[in-house]
Design a protein around this nucleic acid. Structure first.
Lengths: 119, 119
DNA sequence: TCATCATGTAACTCACAGGTTACATGTTAG
DNA sequence: CTAACATGTAACCTGTGAGTTACATGATGA
């Protein structure tokens, strides 16, 4: 997971139209450029650029069939990013996901943070 | 979770220096502006702008004590974003780790090579 | 007190993201 | 065969993200 990979990932998701494209592909896998572009006010070329950004970040996969290019959402980068952030920041996550044992640890962590704040 | 909130969140994490600032705050809670800025080659003002972006996105909390402003990492936005994405995309999370990933890289790689040729 | 220190603000430059229009290329239906 | 169609590329414009230098403000230690 290089810094460039992470930057591409977050930059791609930083634009609302690009997040919406992923939503559209989740609901309608295999959509064409034209179908996706029809959901936006901006031009088809703008949509194509968004698709390129998403594909560079690995967030979607495309394949050309005849004169039509079809697109699919790819969950792998999100999964990887989830694992990276939950791993490195696990000390902040403990107890925030449901289990009783972890929640006890969480309160202790919060107290520690408060203590550090006052110090 | 408004679109603006999500955009601020991902935009904030889209810069490697800002992600590094969060790492620094995780390891050294309560760091000052100067302490954080000392880890980067760019100017202190650049760091201050990064801190402002992170604070606007809710990713850090700061408090001024005397002439020093102290900073803490805030996990809440990451937690919320995790819940939003894993919930809405959960149906894609199972059994997709094999064949898709390699294909995802190819077109993006082609575009990168084209760009390098032109450069 | 006052010189130094830490932070904050202002004003500017530069690169590039994100949009546009115009045109090119390849595919398919009639 | 060719006209309509779907996508791709080129060239350009504009706003803003991200950096800089210069200066201002408020706190603190000697």
């Amino acid at each position: 997971m290089t810094p460039d990979t992470e930057t591409a990932f977050f930059s791609a998701l930083a634009h609302p139209d690009r997040r919406r494209i992923l939503d559209l592909l989740r609901l309608s896998p295999g959509s064409s450029v034209g179908e996706i572009a029809s959901h936006f006010d901006s031009s088809r070329i703008a949509t194509m650029k968004h698709l390129a950004v998403l594909e560079d970040a690995g967030l979607l996969i495309s394949e050309k069939e005849g004169r039509v290019r079809k697109h699919w959402f790819n969950v792998v980068p999100i999964q990887r990013m989830y694992e990276r952030w939950t791993d490195e920041y696990s000390s902040f996550w403990a107890g925030r996901l449901g289990s009783i044992q972890e929640r006890a640890e969480s309160r202790a962590a919060e107290r520690r943070e408060e203590g550090e704040k006052r110090a």
